[in-house]
Simulated scan of single mutants.
Amino acid sequence: MWSLHALAARIYARGFEDGERAESERSNAQRRREREARITAEKRVPISGVVL
């Protein structure tokens, strides 16, 4: 019986870890999009900082 509980705990832990990894990837992708948008926006602003 104990081995069945241990197996269930391992399966649950793997699922949890997979979920954490997926959330981390989503978060990294969001930060990457924000950074790329900021860089693109900075390229559009003239060096003087004055937007016409």
Score class of each variant (00 low, 15 high):
residue 7 L to F: 10
residue 23 E to D: 13
residue 32 R to I: 02
residue 36 E to L: 10
residue 31 R to I: 01
residue 25 E to T: 05
residue 41 A to H: 06
residue 29 A to G: 00
residue 42 E to I: 01
residue 24 S to N: 06
residue 22 A to W: 04
residue 38 R to E: 11
residue 31 R to W: 02
residue 13 A to R: 12
residue 46 P to D: 09
residue 14 R to A: 12
residue 36 E to Q: 09
residue 33 R to P: 00
residue 26 R to T: 01
residue 18 D to K: 14
residue 19 G to K: 10
residue 52 L to D: 13
residue 25 E to M: 06
residue 28 N to T: 09
residue 17 E to K: 09
residue 21 R to M: 07
residue 46 P to M: 03
residue 44 R to F: 10
residue 17 E to W: 11
residue 37 A to I: 05
residue 2 W to T: 12
residue 28 N to L: 09
residue 26 R to P: 00
residue 49 G to S: 14
residue 44 R to L: 15
residue 31 R to E: 04
residue 48 S to V: 03
residue 3 S to R: 05
residue 36 E to C: 00
residue 4 L to C: 07
residue 6 A to Y: 03
residue 13 A to K: 12
residue 2 W to R: 14
residue 28 N to K: 07
residue 38 R to N: 01
residue 6 A to C: 09
residue 52 L to C: 12
residue 43 K to Y: 04
residue 7 L to Y: 10
residue 4 L to Q: 13
residue 1 M to I: 07
residue 10 R to V: 11
residue 32 R to C: 00
residue 34 E to G: 01
residue 48 S to M: 03
residue 52 L to Y: 09
residue 38 R to W: 04
residue 21 R to V: 11
residue 35 R to Y: 04
residue 8 A to I: 10
residue 35 R to A: 08
residue 39 I to T: 08
residue 52 L to F: 08
residue 16 F to L: 14
residue 27 S to K: 07
residue 52 L to N: 12
residue 24 S to Y: 03
residue 11 I to Q: 14
residue 41 A to E: 14
residue 43 K to E: 11
residue 4 L to K: 10
residue 37 A to Y: 02
residue 21 R to F: 02
residue 24 S to D: 04
residue 21 R to T: 09
residue 39 I to F: 03
residue 47 I to C: 06
residue 45 V to M: 10
residue 51 V to A: 13
residue 14 R to H: 14
residue 9 A to K: 10
residue 47 I to T: 11
residue 20 E to S: 03
residue 12 Y to Q: 15
residue 40 T to M: 05
residue 29 A to V: 05
residue 17 E to C: 02
residue 21 R to W: 02
residue 21 R to L: 09
residue 31 R to C: 01
residue 9 A to Y: 04
residue 9 A to F: 07
residue 23 E to K: 13
residue 22 A to F: 05
residue 41 A to L: 15
residue 46 P to A: 12
residue 5 H to F: 13
residue 34 E to H: 01
residue 7 L to I: 06
residue 33 R to K: 05
residue 6 A to T: 06
residue 13 A to G: 02
residue 30 Q to D: 08
residue 36 E to S: 04
residue 37 A to W: 00
residue 43 K to V: 07
residue 44 R to G: 04
residue 32 R to W: 01
residue 4 L to V: 08
residue 11 I to H: 12
residue 7 L to N: 12
residue 26 R to A: 09
residue 13 A to T: 06
residue 2 W to V: 09
residue 8 A to Q: 13
residue 34 E to R: 07
residue 50 V to M: 04
residue 28 N to D: 08
residue 46 P to F: 01
residue 19 G to H: 05
residue 50 V to G: 01
residue 29 A to E: 05
residue 5 H to S: 13
residue 6 A to P: 00
residue 40 T to Q: 11
residue 42 E to F: 03
residue 32 R to E: 05
residue 18 D to E: 15
residue 4 L to T: 07
residue 4 L to H: 11
residue 52 L to A: 09
residue 20 E to T: 06
residue 4 L to S: 14
residue 13 A to L: 13
residue 24 S to P: 00
residue 38 R to T: 05
residue 3 S to F: 07
residue 35 R to W: 06
residue 51 V to W: 08
residue 21 R to P: 00
residue 14 R to G: 08
residue 25 E to W: 01
residue 27 S to D: 03
residue 41 A to G: 03
residue 21 R to D: 09
residue 19 G to C: 09
residue 33 R to T: 02
residue 14 R to F: 14
residue 19 G to P: 04
residue 13 A to Y: 12
residue 40 T to L: 06
residue 40 T to A: 11
residue 48 S to C: 11
residue 30 Q to G: 03
